[in-house]
Every structure is written in structure tokens, then in C-alpha cells.
């Protein structure tokens, strides 16, 4: 299905961008350490790596959510009978979709206000704040879509994707 492929592509692409930003933090800070050795200042390295971290976090949100990286306590719900357990997953996903949507609206508001007043970061370089802030809003849009995506999937009677997390170091 086309929509499935588009969505999966979007989740993966924003996660890939998030990974590059995380590596970017390492590059910036390394440049700052090495630069200091030669008397060169990397302008606003600290502020910008902070923005990279925030942006990376939100861009990776949907992908890691579907991958089951985000923590939830399943101790209680896992003891429920099957149909109640399914209902609890639907409920949790509905709440998550609403909260993400609500958060998206206000994250957009934050970026829009920074744009309107031309807010700049402090430090050597004034970074226009709407740039990193709108990637927070974009990441939350993706998260909202991912929550809704999962909700639809569960309502259709399939297992949610976040159950398939197999990355833990214990079996």
C-alpha cells in the first residue's frame, strides 16, 4: 500500500536525520576541543549542540516509538484477559494521540511566535529560534501520526509494532 510505504519512509527519514544531528553534536564538540588547541573559536558550539539534541530527540520520536524504545509499564495490563488488554492498548494509544496532537499545536505556537518576533539565541551566533523549534513541531506531527497509525493498526486487530522491540540485552 502506498500510504504505508510513504509513512514508513517518513518515520525512517526523520530518524536518519536525527541520527545525523546526534553525530553532529559529536563533530561540533570535537571541533571545539581541537579548535581551542589552535586558538580557534567554534561559534556557539554549545548552543547549537543543544539545538541539535532537542531536534534529534523530536525527529526520532515516531521511529523509536514504533520500535518499542519508549518505556511503558505493562505489568498490570499484561495480567488482564485478552479483550481487556486490547482495550487498554486502544485507550493508551488514543490518549497518546490526543496528547501528541495537543502538544503539536503548542509547539507550533512556540515556533510561530519566535518567527513573528524574530527571536534569536544568545551566544556568539544568533540562531533564529524558529528553525530548531519548528523541527520540534514537525517531530511531534510525526509522533501524532505514528500514534494514530498504531491505533488504526490495533483496531484492525493486529499486534502493535512497538511490541516487537527485540533490542534488549537480556532475553
Amino acid at each position: 500500500m502506498l500510504i504505508r510505504r510513504v509513512l514508513d519512509g517518513l518515520y525512517l527519514a526523520s530518524a536518519a536525520l536525527a541520527a545525523m544531528l546526534l553525530a553532529g553534536i559529536g563533530v561540533l564538540i570535537l571541533a571545539q576541543i581541537v579548535g581551542r588547541f589552535f586558538g580557534i573559536v567554534v561559534p556557539s558550539a554549545n548552543e547549537i549542540s543543544g539545538f541539535f539534541l532537542a531536534t534529534s530527540t523530536f525527529l526520532a520520536l515516531a521511529y523509536s516509538f514504533r520500535g518499542g524504545t519508549h518505556i511503558r509499564v505493562t505489568l498490570v495490563v499484561s495480567h488482564l484477559p485478552k479483550h481487556l488488554h486490547n482495550a487498554s492498548v486502544v485507550l493508551a494509544l488514543s490518549v497518546a494521540t490526543i496528547l501528541s496532537g495537543y502538544f503539536t499545536y503548542y509547539a507550533y505556537g512556540l515556533a510561530a511566535e519566535s518567527w513573528r518576533y524574530g527571536d534569536l539565541s544568545d551566544g556568539l551566533v544568533g540562531v533564529p529560534l524558529w528553525i530548531p523549534q519548528s523541527s520540534m513541531a514537525f517531530g511531534l506531527v510525526m509522533m501524532t501520526i505514528a500514534c494514530f497509525d498504531e491505533l488504526v493498526r490495533v483496531l484492525r486487530g493486529r499486534e502493535p509494532s512497538f511490541k516487537e522491540n527485540t533490542e534488549s540485552v537480556l532475553d
Binding site: 524574530g118 527571536d119 534569536l120 539565541s121 544568545d122 551566544g123 551566533v125 544568533g126
Partner: peptide
């Protein structure tokens, strides 16, 4: 109401 160090907004 709030308090701030003025020069923080120097880039603006």
C-alpha cells in the same frame, strides 16, 4: 512578570 539579564537578548 519576570526578571532577566538584559544582555542575553543582545543578538536580537
Amino acid at each position: 512578570i519576570g526578571e532577566v539579564l538584559m544582555s542575553v537578548h543582545g543578538n536580537e
